[in-house]
Simulated assay, not measured.
Amino acid sequence: GRITKDPNPYSRNSHFFYSPFLPKFTRTTYTKPTKNLSPIDNEPIKREYTLRTLSILNTIYPKRCNCPKSLENPSLNFLRLKSKESIARCSHCHKQISITANTPFQNIKLPLAYISYTIQDQILQYPKTMTSKEIARKLGLPYKTAYYLKKRIQVFFSHLNESLREQLYKELEESSKNFRLPKEGDLKETLKNQPVAVADSVVLYSSSLRANKHRSRRFKGGTASIYASNSIGGHQIGTLVHTIGINGGMTFYKSIPLNNQHYLEKDLEETIPKNVTLFTDEGYGFLWDRPNHKSVNHSKKSNDPRYNMSRERWVSKDGVSSNGAEARNNILKQSFRSYGYISPKWSQLALNELSFLGNVRFVPELKELLTLGGSKTVGFGDFL
């Protein structure tokens, strides 16, 4: 018969590929892992993230024992009980105290390392949002488990963001106590060392005609695109967001059902003191009690017959501009592209998450606690 040449065992096209770095006749094999490998699978790394989570919880939700000695010198020891990471012991009476009790992570069954690892990843990825599928893929978790972990973290971010809002309100109130804008003239020099707030509204996930079954809109304006027609229930489909920010500073988003005076003014009163300089478009004409409020006309026509629209519709001659709010709306839209869709029911949680991830950079101590530092301050004896 015909003599055939033996296949080259070192050829990668061969079914029996032998590595030249291994002994002869040793076949290389590949075993697929049962789950996606993550950095948390490394024990030293997992311990470091566990300590970081304990540090975060102990700093933001401090706990202590009620024994007499702890009232004078509170001290807790962590990681003393096997397979119970969230339980600390009083160093005086040895009473067990749950670190996750009365927090968004109460009764969580996952390892605590997953919390700080996900939080750090979210902060580093901003303005990109981290979806539940991405968390599931990185940590090797089922989708539903990753979904509920993300929901807990969103509630945690909402608590922190509310604290930042209250702190910002106090600082703005102090810095703009007796400040008044001139009625005319260029405002650039006047506002050189003053905080300037901007506000605007934007629609996310608007309903198309197909989603509305080609029926007429329920409302007019921007609100029309987030509600279905009355003939098919009139339920809300999209999300209407009110954006408030400080130029060069923090940003806060509020999910509102209607773009009217009641909801817009209420949100402004909760976030921005009345003496702070506020730049908006002409949709805020109802603000009569804010002496430092200026608006820009986005529909201003040009006096030059060669042009249709005036270039002052973005920045007026006095320096009034709401471009800061437009830029924040752009970041919001880009970030929410990662989600296929978010129900209006959960929209505020997602908005608080994005708002906090953008605001945390203005609080270096908090950012250090949540990302790189502070993990070795949870108590005495953690590294024994």
Rank of each mutant, 00 (worst) to 15 (best):
Gly1Gln: 09
Arg2Ile: 11
Asn8His: 01
Ser11Gly: 08
Asn13Arg: 12
His15Ile: 01
Phe16Tyr: 05
Pro20Met: 08
Thr31Trp: 08
Lys32Gln: 14
Pro33Phe: 07
Lys35Leu: 06
Pro44Asn: 12
Ile45Glu: 09
Arg47Ser: 11
Tyr49Met: 10
Leu51Asn: 13
Arg52Pro: 00
Leu54Tyr: 03
Ile56Val: 12
Leu57His: 06
Thr59Ala: 14
Thr59Pro: 00
Lys63Gly: 05
Cys65Thr: 08
Cys65Gln: 09
Lys69Ser: 15
Phe78Arg: 13
Leu81Lys: 14
Lys84Cys: 10
Lys84Asp: 06
Glu85His: 04
Ser91Leu: 05
Lys95His: 14
Gln96Glu: 15
Asn102Lys: 15
Phe105Ala: 09
Asn107His: 10
Leu110Tyr: 05
Ala113His: 03
Tyr126Val: 03
Glu134Thr: 10
Ile135Ala: 08
Leu139His: 11
Gly140Phe: 12
Leu141Ile: 07
Lys144Tyr: 04
Tyr147Trp: 15
Val155Asn: 11
Phe157Leu: 02
Phe157Gly: 03
Ser158Ile: 00
Asn161Cys: 06
Lys170Met: 11
Ser175Val: 12
Arg180Val: 03
Glu189Leu: 12
Thr190Cys: 08
Thr190His: 10
Ala197Gln: 02
Lys213Asp: 13
Arg215Ala: 04
Arg217Met: 02
Arg218Asn: 02
Phe219Trp: 07
Lys220Pro: 00
Lys220His: 10
Ser225Cys: 04
Ser229Met: 01
Ser229Arg: 05
Ile232Trp: 02
Gly238Ile: 05
Leu240Asn: 06
Val241Tyr: 06
Ile246Pro: 03
Gly248Met: 10
Asn259Lys: 13
Asn260Thr: 07
Gln261Asn: 12
Glu265Gly: 07
Glu270Asn: 13
Thr271Cys: 06
Lys274Gly: 01
Val276Ile: 08
Thr277Glu: 05
Leu278Ile: 03
Phe286Asn: 04
Asp289His: 11
Lys294Glu: 10
Asn297Tyr: 06
Asn297Gln: 09
Lys301Ile: 06
Asn303Phe: 01
Pro305Leu: 05
Arg306Gly: 00
Ser310Trp: 02
Trp314Phe: 15
Ser316Gln: 08
Lys317Gln: 14
Gly319Arg: 05
Gly319Trp: 06
Ser322Tyr: 05
Ala325Phe: 04
Ala327Lys: 12
Lys333Leu: 00
Lys333Ala: 05
Gln334Lys: 15
Gln334Arg: 15
Gln334Tyr: 09
Ser338Glu: 15
Leu351Met: 07
Glu353Asn: 03
Phe356Tyr: 14
Leu357Ile: 05
Val363Lys: 13
Val363Tyr: 10
Pro364Tyr: 08
Pro364Val: 07
Glu365Leu: 04
Leu366Val: 04
Ser375Trp: 12
Gly379Leu: 01
Phe380Arg: 15
